[in-house]
């Protein structure tokens, strides 16, 4: 239990998160997410795929894994150039914030977001599982908050969905933190997150950066 963990996981932490919908804007426009039920299914799938991958990379980076290896392994797991760009933009924003608050072990300006999160979490004195939890939690709260803004869903009902995912989120973080080697790092893919991100990047007008 640590206040630092809450600080880093807080949606108000100034690391650019508010401008990213985690694929939700694309899913809403495609008609795949329309209401609480479809949002719940979206969050389930995102947590099990992108959430587990992000959590495992955050834990590995927090444990002191080589950032450039982790960064290129993250590239290999992110076929969508739009998602690579979004991940690096959020990583850059997080490193900017982290560098102001703590002393980071890397001089990189830009890393994939989960790798940056691990680096910042380590600098803040957090454990790998806490870094993993922050990453997993962020992969569901980002789109949940975007859903409130885009679909006008009841914020209480939306938070109830997130609360219901708490146990799954904890389990994802525990599993992610157990990953011991680079080869074991998960690569769970979500085809519609990739395809949706490419469609989103091709739009003329977007409300969210990704």
């Amino acid at each position: 239990m640590s206040t630092t963990l809450l600080l880093l996981a807080d949606g108000r932490f100034p690391a650019g998160g508010h401008a990213h919908s985690g694929g939700l804007e694309a899913a809403v426009t495609a008609g795949r997410v329309r209401d609480l039920e479809t949002l719940a299914a979206f969050l389930d799938g995102r947590l099990a795929t992108a959430g587990l991958v992000a959590a495992a990379f955050a834990a590995a980076a927090c444990r002191g894994g080589d950032t450039s290896t982790l960064d290129s392994e993250m590239d290999a797991r992110t076929p969508s150039p739009a998602l690579r760009k979004a991940s690096r933009a959020q990583g850059r924003a997080l490193l900017r914030a982290g560098r102001t608050l703590w002393t980071l072990s890397t001089v990189e300006r830009e890393l994939h977001h989960p790798v940056a999160l691990g680096v910042v979490a380590a600098a803040a004195g957090l454990a790998p599982e806490e870094a993993a939890l922050t990453a997993a939690y962020g992969t569901v709260t980002g789109p949940a908050s975007a859903a409130v803004r885009l679909l006008g869903l009841d914020p209480y009902a939306t938070h109830a969905l997130v609360a219901r995912l708490a146990r799954d989120c904890d389990a994802v973080a525990r599993r992610a933190a157990r990953v011991a080697t680079v080869d074991e790092l998960p690569a769970c893919s979500a085809p519609l997150l990739d395809i949706g991100a490419e469609a989103h990047a091709s739009w003329e007008v977007r409300l969210f950066a990704s």
Partner: peptide
Amino acid sequence: AVETGCCPHTAIRDDISANLD
């Protein structure tokens, strides 16, 4: 152009990272 995720005031006041970038 900077996307603000439907939060124009956040992007210029509370979380300025995308604008700084």
